[in-house]
């Protein structure tokens, strides 16, 4: 399954947790916030796990074809 991952910079506080858990997928930008490097080599389940560790629920994981949101669940939307 192709996935789409986005980091919401209105929510990211730069905890670096996603970078720690998936260093090949995330890096910090010049503002100290997280940015996606690539979705390659990491499966959807790992992205969902890591998105779940984000204290701000700033990472959104979607099915690239259907647009189905795999994370965060609706009740975590602020």
């Amino acid at each position: 399954m192709g996935i789409k991952v986005t980091v919401n910079h209105n929510r990211c506080v730069g905890s670096r947790l996603c970078v720690g858990f998936l260093p090949d997928a995330f890096k910090l930008n010049g503002q100290g916030q997280s940015e996606l490097i690539t979705t390659g080599g990491v499966n959807a389940e790992e992205f969902v796990q890591t998105a779940g560790q984000c204290p701000q629920s700033a990472i959104k994981v979607e099915d690239a074809e259907t647009g189905e949101v795999l994370f965060p669940p609706a009740e975590l939307e602020m």
Binding site: V13, G14, S15, G32, P55
Partner: peptide, 9 residues
């Protein structure tokens, strides 16, 4: 309010 960065609450 919870700080930012690696020590965020």
């Amino acid at each position: 309010a919870f700080a930012h960065g690696i020590h965020v609450c």
